[in-house]
Simulated scan of single mutants.
Amino acid sequence: MSSQSERLKEARLKAGLSQKQVAEAVGMKQPSYNYLEKNDKGGSAKLPEIAKVLNVDPYWLRTGKTTSDVDADLKKLLENSPVLELDSNGEDPDRIWIDLVNIRFSCGDGESIEFHYDDVLARREIPASIFKKHNVKPENTKLALATGDSQEPYVCNGDEFAIDLSDTEIRDGEFYAVYFEGEAMLKQVFKEQGKKLILHSLNPKYKDKVVSSDNGVGFRVIGRQFYRAG
């Protein structure tokens, strides 16, 4: 598989643009853009904008995969239900244990979506009352980690949060784990006129992201966030 820098250069040449033209289109300095084409580990919050200028899938630009690969990952996530350990044999256990697996969602500028199902970081106990309160089945739950500060003080960097994978229908103002423009994010989602969605950050230093018919082809709702633990 090619590296990010190679894909970036390949897409730029195919688009018939110079480094300077791409850099100016996204508000970067040409040396900063050149760094991205020269360094395999070069990262930038501008990558989704660069992908738009080059008319390529931002997820492909970041990872070398396509949005169909994202769907495959999400399907795998749904099929790999968490390992549950109930501390009693009754139908209404007081304690439910769920694996915290290495699934990370950005509370910042976003990051490539990566699911490491076999990497169990810890086991966490969630009271059965939490599932009852939110009408969530434990078998539909995944625990994930938040990275970044865009949802502070509600969700902070390093916090763990639970996702209901069966709940993907947007309810105005609720928090959802989503995939958008090559990024896995935890965002508060609002509905707007014209079938637009606003991906909102509580931290005012982060701008809202708008999902529309123009850019929402690869948008995916992974699940609703219903529980958090700092």
Rank of each mutant, 00 (worst) to 15 (best):
L197M: 04
E111L: 10
S68C: 00
I50L: 10
N55P: 03
S18A: 04
E125P: 00
E111V: 05
G42C: 06
F219K: 02
Q30G: 03
A23L: 07
K209L: 15
S150T: 05
V22D: 01
A177T: 13
S213N: 09
Y176Q: 06
Y227I: 05
S213K: 09
V83I: 11
Q188D: 03
N102C: 02
R220T: 06
T66E: 05
V189N: 02
L121Y: 01
V178M: 08
D71Y: 07
L197F: 11
K187Q: 09
S129V: 15
D167H: 14
K137Q: 15
F180T: 02
Y35S: 08
D159G: 12
N39H: 15
A25H: 06
L78F: 04
M28F: 11
V26W: 03
E174C: 12
G223S: 04
F131S: 03
I103T: 02
R171T: 13
E6F: 07
I163L: 13
L78V: 07
Q188K: 12
M1L: 07
V210L: 14
N55T: 08
S18K: 06
E183P: 00
R228N: 10
F219D: 02
S3V: 06
V211Y: 03
I222V: 13
A184V: 07
V136P: 00
L197Y: 09
K137P: 02
I113C: 06
D109S: 07
Q30V: 15
F226M: 03
F219V: 07
C156A: 15
K14D: 06
G230D: 09
A229T: 12
I170Q: 03
Y117F: 15
D71L: 12
K191E: 12
L47E: 02
K52V: 06
K65S: 09
K29A: 14
L61Q: 03
F161N: 01
D40A: 15
T141L: 07
E111H: 11
A229F: 10
Y35G: 01
D92F: 14
V56F: 04
L36F: 13
K142C: 06
L145S: 08
E192G: 06
A162E: 03
